[in-house]
Computed example of a mutant assay.
Amino acid sequence: MTATLPWSGRTDHHCFGCSPRNAAGLQLSFEDAEDGLSAQFCLDKHYESYPGVVHGGILAVICDETMGNLIVMRLGVPALTTSMRMRYVGVVRVGGRYRCLARAEVKPDLVHATAEILDSAGMVVGTATATYLPRGSQL
């Protein structure tokens, strides 16, 4: 089932990661999945680092977007990233099909989240862990 963000209909929503109105952005969309949230993506050479390889910073954005938006879906409020660690264990190729899967554990003041980037065969090619600070109202 497609997950809808609370601000998705706003005309001032221009998020680099998930706004369909940001032509330079990733335009990610999210689906409920496996006790979490997922985003499927296939990136072109505009997001390239080495020839044919997606830039690692873009993969970090995808993980952060998926984890952060999972928190929005669960808590109903935005959450600010306080720390994040990426681990790259495989190559993400330009033009390849991938999926980011995020899960989160809500603590009293912070939310701890994890994400995996999976290739089309289901192999993990990247992981992220992060901590988020929920905000009491919409930004």
Rank of each mutant, 00 (worst) to 15 (best):
A3G: 07
W7S: 01
W7C: 06
W7Y: 13
W7T: 00
W7G: 00
G9K: 11
G9Q: 11
D12W: 11
H13I: 02
H14V: 10
H14M: 12
H14T: 04
C15S: 14
S19N: 04
S19F: 09
R21P: 04
N22W: 11
A23S: 15
A24F: 03
G25C: 08
S29L: 01
F30P: 00
F30T: 00
F30M: 01
E31D: 10
E31H: 08
E31N: 05
D32L: 14
D32K: 15
A33F: 14
A33K: 10
G36V: 09
S38F: 04
A39K: 00
L43A: 09
D44H: 07
D44G: 15
K45R: 14
H46T: 14
H46I: 05
H46A: 15
Y47A: 11
Y47P: 07
E48G: 10
E48T: 12
E48K: 11
E48S: 06
S49M: 03
S49G: 15
P51M: 12
G52W: 05
G52Y: 07
H55M: 09
H55F: 15
H55S: 03
G56L: 09
G57A: 07
I58M: 05
I58W: 00
L59F: 04
A60T: 14
I62Y: 07
C63F: 07
C63S: 03
E65V: 07
E65M: 12
M67C: 03
N69D: 04
L70D: 06
L70F: 03
I71S: 01
I71R: 09
L75S: 06
L75E: 03
L75N: 01
A79K: 03
T82L: 14
T82A: 14
T82R: 14
T82G: 02
M84K: 12
R85C: 05
R85P: 00
R85M: 11
R85Y: 01
R85G: 11
M86I: 03
R87E: 10
Y88H: 10
G90K: 06
G90V: 01
V91I: 15
R93L: 10
V94G: 03
G95W: 09
G96H: 03
L101P: 08
L101K: 07
A102N: 02
A102H: 08
R103M: 03
A104G: 06
E105P: 02
V106C: 13
K107N: 02
K107V: 00
K107R: 14
D109W: 09
D109M: 15
L110G: 00
V111D: 01
V111M: 08
T114N: 13
I117A: 09
L118N: 03
L118T: 02
L118A: 04
L118E: 07
D119I: 10
D119Y: 06
A121E: 13
G122L: 05
G122S: 10
M123Q: 15
V124E: 00
G126M: 02
T127N: 10
T127H: 03
T127S: 15
A128D: 09
T129G: 11
T129N: 12
T129Q: 14
A130G: 11
A130K: 04
T131G: 13
T131F: 05
T131Y: 02
Y132S: 08
L133D: 08
P134E: 09
P134S: 13
G136P: 04
G136Y: 04
G136L: 08
S137I: 06
S137P: 01
S137D: 06
Q138S: 11
L139A: 13
L139W: 14
L139K: 13
L139G: 12
